[in-house]
């Protein structure tokens, strides 16, 4: 089949970008979307043009590298599917597609469809962990974990950090990503002791990074390739509220410690 692609081209973070049109010929329905772009790129190189930069690595929906908007929907909008898992059999001959990078000031464009998502790493660094240094762990079975909690934690831990939630959110909020980590760690007994500070620190960091504020629209949940649920955002709000109301001034915590 043959497709027309409108792709955002931008040389680097400081130069302006624009949409450009390309023809993708000889597209097989068995190709993945990225393989289709590979072919377009090979043609561009042969023609002496700069190939379209897009991020990818595992190509099986787990590393979270890939991701851009296809026709106004993050990852193309197929349930639980990243761009790299999307196959061309979902498209038709003659389709015209719009391909754009994630748009958020916290995700500046690096080149073409590649954006800088390091803000996510800094949100995790602010508190998205359990403070346990190597060697200090008790036996794995020392603390039983309710199966349901382990399963719920796993559901939330499935987040791949792709950024689609931010991209789809009309507010460019990082609530689903942040909520997923807070929910994951907060549902395990090991993570409970730190859950309040974790929420405070991660939420503050997300604010510093320039993400917008969640107004519970739910586009994030609909386009998240890992099915992370809005419930995680409620948990984030809950922990953040509890933490805010019970936070002690620094002097008091120091004397208690």
């Amino acid at each position: 089949m043959k497709l027309t692609l409108n792709v955002w081209r931008q040389k680097n973070a400081s130069s302006p970008g624009r949409m450009e049109r390309y023809e993708a010929r000889n597209v097989s329905e068995h190709m993945s979307f990225l393989e289709m772009l590979d072919v377009v790129n090979e043609d561009l190189i042969a023609a002496g043009q700069d190939p379209i930069a897009f991020e990818h690595d595992c190509r099986e929906g787990i590393c979270g590298s890939c991701g851009f908007m296809i026709d106004g929907v993050a990852h193309g909008g197929f349930k639980n599917t990243t761009v790299c898992q999307l196959h061309m059999r979902h498209f038709h001959d003659g389709d015209e597609l719009w391909i754009e990078p994630w748009r958020a000031s916290a995700f500046p464009v690096v080149k073409d469809l590649v954006v800088d998502r390091s803000a996510f790493d800094r949100i995790i660094a602010a508190g998205g962990y359990i403070s346990v240094s190597t060697g200090s762990a008790p036996d794995g079975n020392a603390i039983p974990v309710r199966k349901l909690d382990a399963d719920l934690a796993m559901d939330a831990a499935a987040c791949i950090g792709c950024g689609a939630c931010v991209a789809s959110c009309p507010n460019a909020a990082a609530a689903l990503f942040t909520g997923a980590k807070i929910f994951h760690l907060g549902h395990l007994p090991q993570g409970v002791p730190e859950s309040r500070e974790r929420a405070l620190r991660m939420v503050r960091q997300a604010n510093l990074e320039g993400f917008g504020n969640c107004t519970n629209i739910g586009e994030c949940e609909a386009t998240c390739p890992k099915g992370i649920r809005l419930e995680t955002i409620a948990k984030l709000n809950r922990d953040f509220l509890m933490a805010s109301w019970t936070e002690r001034p620094p002097a008091e915590t120091a004397s208690a410690a």
Binding site: Y129, I130, V132, T134, G135, S136, A137, P138, D139, G140, N141, I143, P144, V145, R146, K147, A150, D151, A153, M154, A157, H184, L185, L188, Q190, G191
Partner: peptide, 22 residues
């Protein structure tokens, strides 16, 4: 043996039995 202990402590959501064990 220590790897599993460490990972559990870090919050790796390993599969569990109904009784709560790994």
């Amino acid at each position: 043996v220590s790897i599993i202990d460490q990972c559990v402590a870090q919050g790796v959501p390993f599969a569990r039995e109904y009784g709560g064990t790994l």
